[in-house]
């Protein structure tokens, strides 16, 4: 099997990006009529739909917390989302772990103490997976939560980063992910300046690791301005209609 050249001699990656370039991001809010907040997000070829319901009456009595709201995340990956059709779409360990990770991330950022004894539901549907599923889901959830009018400390912006032959790269696509390149996912609160989530797989030397994490947080800061524009556009549209 010939080794795919992940970085060309000119320094371009297989999809033509430079190592520190994010993929094209397009997103829209208010896409679902029934949900309190909803967002559709495309990061490169990865496409995710997020819906938020809440805060509302808790449906799972056993999980009710007396002094704050609890967040429940359901993560679904469509069978047609990858190259090969998936047989098991729900309940597999990876999906459960992703849902749990996202829940933990947002429980620390959403100001849940304002809604005791209630439940916030986040539903995620991955329509196309081309690398960076977790960051895309986190970004989509952020948009949907802000769209639903749920108070948060800051935008949770997420980005994946890795390293190919000691060069840190930003926003990993599927091919780079499938190779043995390490995969670091960072979720950052850009205005607050704190890391909400840090996840890493495969081996990375400590010196390179620092650079990769720094690149990841830079990517997150850039992501925030893009997500912010999407929210403002959504709001401006409604405001224009209201006040014309």
């Amino acid at each position: 099997m010939s080794r795919l050249e992940l970085i060309s001699p000119e320094g371009l990656r297989i999809d033509g990006r430079r190592p520190n370039e994010l993929r094209k991001l397009t997103a829209k809010v208010n896409v679902l009529s029934q949900a309190d907040g909803s967002a559709y997000l495309e990061q490169g070829n990865t496409k995710v739909l997020a819906a938020v319901y809440g805060p509302g009456e808790p449906r799972q009595r056993s999980k009710v917390v007396h002094d704050r709201s609890f967040i429940s995340v359901e993560f679904n990956i469509a069978p047609f989302s990858a190259g090969e059709r998936r047989k098991r779409t729900k309940g597999d360990k990876r999906s459960l772990e992703l849902a749990y990770t996202i829940k933990e991330t947002f429980e620390a950022v959403v100001i849940t103490t304002q809604f005791p004894r209630s439940q916030i539901n986040i539903y995620l549907q991955v329509l196309q997976a081309d690398g960076g599923t977790l960051p895309a889901c986190i970004n989509a959830s952020t948009l949907a939560l802000v769209n639903a009018g749920i108070p948060m400390l800051d935008y949770v912006c997420a980005c994946s980063a890795g390293s190919i032959e000691k060069t840190p790269i930003l926003d990993i696509n599927y091919v780079e992910e499938s190779s043995d390149s390490p995969d670091v996912t960072v979720a950052y609160l850009p205005k607050v300046g704190k890391v909400a989530l840090l996840q890493m797989e495969a081996r990375l030397h400590i010196d390179v690791f620092e650079k990769v994490v720094a690149l990841g947080t830079d990517g997150c800061i850039e992501m925030r301005s893009k997500l912010d524009t999407v929210i403002r556009q959504g709001m401006q549209q409604l405001v224009n209609q209201l006040e014309q």
Binding site: E107, H205, V213
Partner: peptide, 30 residues
């Protein structure tokens, strides 16, 4: 591991930490 490599990290949610604090923990971990 012994080669000063990080093999895996999981910091899922919970309190937000600054990057410098996380790096400190990584050094201690080594």
């Amino acid at each position: 591991n012994a080669h000063r490599e990080i093999c895996a990290i999981q910091k899922a949610g919970g309190l937000g930490m600054e990057t410098s604090q996380l790096m400190l923990c990584t050094t201690v971990a080594l």
